[in-house]
Amino acid sequence: MNDLRTNAPRIESLQQFIKYLLVGGVNTIISAAIIFVVQAAGARPVVANIVGYAIGIALSFALNSKVTFRTAVTRYSAIRFLIVMLISYLANLVTMLAVLHVTHAPYFAQLSGIPVYVIVGFLGNKYWAMRER
């Protein structure tokens, strides 16, 4: 019985991480579709990208608040979420540049940053941005 209680937080974290990955996958598909639709409608690629990412970030915040972490949507959690996303992106960028410097393999370097972005984002959201207060 003690094993179930001591493992419960780990199981919950694993379930949240799986939900986080699923939300990220759905969000990526929807954001890409928005980018392509806006671009097909005549917008320049940069404008389409900005629109798609802006909607994607808002959707990610809403879905992760409700589905993954089950927290209230507040102005403060939204600001913290944006900060976590920025830190995640910077961690991704630093990783990509470091791997590129060592390997001189740009595609491998790009792929290397993705897990860093996901893990930093998950941990930042779980323990800071969307933590129950």
Rank of each mutant, 00 (worst) to 15 (best):
A129D: 11
L59R: 01
Y127P: 05
V51I: 15
I83G: 02
L82A: 15
T68L: 03
T95L: 05
S60N: 11
N2T: 05
V26S: 11
L90K: 10
I79L: 15
Y76D: 00
N2L: 00
R80V: 07
A32E: 06
L90N: 04
L63C: 04
A43W: 13
Y127K: 05
M130D: 03
N2W: 04
A129R: 09
I83S: 09
Y117S: 12
V67H: 06
T6V: 07
G124I: 02
V47D: 10
S112K: 07
L82G: 07
F17I: 04
T74S: 12
A91F: 11
A41H: 04
V102T: 12
I55P: 14
L111E: 06
V116Q: 03
I83M: 02
L21S: 06
N2P: 02
N125V: 02
L82M: 15
I50K: 09
H104N: 08
V37H: 08
Y117G: 03
V26K: 08
I119R: 09
I114D: 13
Y107N: 10
S31P: 03
R10S: 07
I87A: 10
T95A: 08
A72I: 00
W128C: 13
R133M: 03
I18T: 13
H101P: 02
R75P: 04
Q16G: 11
T68Q: 02
T68S: 11
V38H: 10
E132M: 12
Y107E: 06
R131K: 15
G124K: 04
P106M: 13
L82I: 14
I50Y: 01
A40M: 06
L59Q: 03
E12F: 00
L90G: 02
Q39W: 09
W128L: 00
V84D: 08
V116I: 15
V47G: 10
A8M: 10
A48L: 04
Q39L: 10
A62L: 13
V84M: 07
G113Y: 08
V84P: 11
I119F: 12
N27V: 12
Q39E: 04
A33I: 12
F108I: 14
W128S: 11
M130L: 02
V118Q: 11
K66H: 15
I30Q: 07
L63A: 13
N125S: 14
I18E: 06
L123S: 04
V94F: 15
L93A: 00
H101S: 14
Q16A: 01
S13C: 03
A105R: 06
T74Q: 08
G42N: 10
V51K: 10
G25N: 06
R5Y: 08
A32M: 14
A129P: 10
I55S: 14
F61Q: 01
L93P: 06
E132I: 08
V84H: 04
V47H: 05
A72P: 02
A78M: 14
S77V: 00
A105T: 01
F81K: 00
V94D: 04
I29W: 07
